[in-house]
Write a protein that binds this DNA or RNA. Structure first.
Length: 641
RNA sequence: GCCGGGUUAGUUUAAUGGUAAAAUACUGCAAUGGUAAUGCAGGGCUGCGAGUUCGAUUCUCGCACCGGGCACCA
């Protein structure tokens, strides 16, 4: 007999080799029906897998979050089986469940296109209705190698499994897959799924390897849930900054302007100007000094910094002139080093905080270019803080506080914090000085802990000169992007031989903190378009008020009075006095997502009031002119959303 | 850069081996109005290059660009 402990701490006894499925059935048939898998001492267990010893058991029902990866991973296997039947030469890579759904990578001579997805889905349904039992088998390394003898990718995976670790396969009918498990017990349990896209993906994520075909899909426990997910995907597309940016005339792409060089239209430029003003003022508040440095620098400058060797391939090639080679700058750190080095510094001068709107260029891979998100010419709100070692933590926290201020003002949703560390093995990329790295990484981790920041450590993500904290956001389409970054750097100040005189009259090298504030204007704009779904808050909106006179002949005098008031306060308005129907002009104002719409007719002229309708609302308000102006100014000042 | 897909009017979409349509936008005329589309008229389009064909926007190939994914992201 074995003792099974349940989450409520109740204990029951069962025969050894009883399965979780049988246990669920013994409690109630309806529970058994809802069960998808189990967690045995925290490990995912199939319902048909015999339990050998005493354990804690948690039954995972189909309304439990933990059920989704089990179902989706099983659906990945089902898809693989269908693919194998349709493309007998297919060789398989990996097919995990992911945050949303699943994918499977495979390799076949035949081209698989979007149209083939329907075919594969049909085959999947057929296999599901064959009601094949899914069974787990523990096998030896030799058996595994024999089983997957024709499957080079699986053999490679077997090689990667450590000696002594258990190897398991899951079988369903004629199909077997190397897999650590977490599955439903029968293919018939997989009823509701949708294959989404065909994509390419490098084997083991390495661009030196062959590119496999990857199919993404999504499975759920009801057709309704699948439909709801497809709906979400559709909504995300509607929110995509590339779509809204075009509709709302924020930016345009033109091949003549060059790949990766978007053009900001007047609306986009207006939003950008507001952001720029905000950034500049906040930096002043936080004690930053602004500098202007050139967009182009000598190649020697980047040789000094060390960027040249590492990144020359990823940038626009240098411009060679008589006896100079000039480089379109991809970052501003070297220039800011020169600013610091322009005079003798005392320990009393530190910290020195230099900030700049940095125009920079990078030759991003053509496939990486996306709307305003990844471009080849960008303006970064960059800063470098030159600090004494004893000021590192305080200045780091200072930057963090400032970033959090902006996060709050814009309503940015942080996805997670990433602490990027070096890969100690990678001597080629990372400056070889263990002591320096250990010091920098420890210090960074300490500051984060002190400020109560939860972070994900990422090995091998650090800059070549030091570790960094990245603040990550998610785009509408679900990509993780870096919004802000704070980086610790002991290297560049050395390379530029920077120093200050300490209280003992000794020359000391300062430490540099690199601070990327709110990414580039381009990327922030892309993010904000998606965040607000194009309906910008008052302080950022390209047009803040639409004014519609009911009749140009009778109402223009009062309208002129309103216009004068708005102009005085630099409120951005659009006086729509075209000879069109009222409803037509109202509709246009709404589709352009202008935050406030005012209609001026006899009633308003008579009572000197304003009839206001806010974007997205059906009801109207009547305000006195002064009240109206104050409301707008308040919203601008408070950055109301 | 790599894998697969796409490209029709300013925009969103339709259709076709016999030279293309609608909505909207734009221009003109008429309409003077109260919270999401007034009516009529007009001009405007098959990304580029090659091949197959009597004839290609349609089929094939190459290129460019767009979008999805992977890799990259100082």
């Amino acid at each position: 007999m074995i003792k099974i402990t349940f989450p409520d701490n109740s204990v029951r006894e069962y025969e050894a080799t009883t399965t979780a499925g049988q246990i669920a059935a013994s409690i109630s048939p309806s529970l058994r029906k809802k069960c998808v898998a189990a967690k045995l001492d925290g490990e995912t267990y199939e319902l048909n897998r015999p339990i050998q010893a005493d354990a804690h058991l948690e039954l995972i029902t189909n309304d439990n979050e933990a059920a989704m990866p089990v179902l989706n991973h099983s659906t990945a296997h089902l898809m693989a089986q269908a693919i194998k039947r349709l493309y007998p030469d297919a060789k398989f890579g990996v097919g995990p469940a992911i945050e949303e759904g699943f994918y499977y990578d495979f390799d076949t001579e035949e081209k698989v296109t979007d149209e083939d997805l329907t075919k594969i889905e049909k085959m999947m349904s057929n296999i599901a209705s064959e009601a094949l039992e899914i069974t787990r088998k523990e096998i030896t390394r030799e058996e595994a190698k024999a089983l997957f003898v024709n499957d080079a990718y699986k053999l490679e995976l077997i090689e990667a499994i450590e000696e002594g670790e258990m190897i398991t396969v899951y079988e369903q009918g004629e199909f077997a897959d190397l897999c650590a498990g977490g599955h439903v017990t029968n293919t018939k349990e997989i009823k509701f799924f949708k294959l989404l896209t065909v994509a390419g993906a490098y084997w083991r994520g390495d661009s030196n390897n062959k590119m496999l075909t990857r199919i993404y899909g999504y499975a759920a426990f009801s057709q309704k849930d699948v439909a709801a997910y497809l709906e979400i995907l559709q909504e995300r597309k509607e929110r995509d900054h590339k779509k809204l940016g075009k509709e709302l005339e924020i930016f345009t792409l033109n091949p003549l302007s060059g790949l990766g060089f978007p053009i900001l239209l007047p609306n986009g430029a207006t939003i950008r100007k507001q952001i720029a003003r905000y950034v500049t003022e906040l930096e002043e508040d936080y004690g930053f000094q602004h500098v202007f440095t050139p967009v182009i620098g000598s190649v020697d400058l980047y040789k000094t910094s060390g960027h040249w060797e590492l990144y020359k391939e990823d940038n626009f090639p240098p411009i060679e002139l008589d006896h100079e080679a000039l480089f379109l700058r991809p970052m501003s750190c070297p220039h800011h080093m020169l600013v610091y080095g322009s005079k003798m510094r005392s320990y009393r001068d530190l910290p020195i905080r230099l900030a700049e709107e940095v125009i920079q260029h990078r030759y991003e891979a053509s496939g990486a270019l996306t709307g305003l998100e990844r471009v080849r010419a960008m303006t970064l709100t960059d800063a470098h803080l030159f600090v004494r070692p004893d000021q590192i933590k305080q200045e780091f926290a200072h930057c963090l506080k400032m970033i959090h201020q902006a996060v709050e003002d814009f309503g940015i949703e942080i996805a997670y914090y990433s602490l990027s560390l070096r890969d100690p093995e990678d001597k080629e990329k990372y400056h070889d000085d263990d002591a320096m790295w250990i010091k920098a990484e420890t210090m960074l981790a300490e500051v984060l802990d002190e400020n109560g920041i939860d972070y994900v450590p990422m090995t091998g993500e650090a800059a070549f000169y030091g570790p960094k904290l990245d603040i990550q956001i998610k785009t509408a389409l679900g990509h993780d992007l870096t919004l802000s970054t704070i980086q610790l750097d002991f290297l560049l100040p050395q390379r530029f031989e920077l120093s200050y005189i300490d209280e003992n009259g000794e020359k000391v090298t300062p430490v540099v903190i690199h601070r990327g504030f709110i990414s580039t204007y381009e990327r922030l704009l892309a993010y904000l378009i998606e965040l607000y779904k194009g309906a910008f808050p008052m302080w950022l909106a390209p047009t803040q008020v639409t004014i519609i006179p009911v009749n140009n002949n009778y109402h223009s005098e009062y309208v002129a009075e309103i216009v004068a008031r708005l102009k005085k306060h630099r409120i951005r308005f659009n006086l729509d006095d075209r000879e069109e129907k009222l409803g037509y002009k109202i509709r246009e104002s709404q589709t352009k997502k202008v935050p406030m719409l005012i209609v001026i007719g006899d009633k308003e002229v008579e009572s000197k009031t304003i009839n206001v309708r806010r974007y997205g609302q059906d009801d109207q308000q009547t305000l006195a002119l002064e009240e109206f102006v104050t409301t707008i100014l308040d919203e601008i000042a408070n950055k109301s959303r």
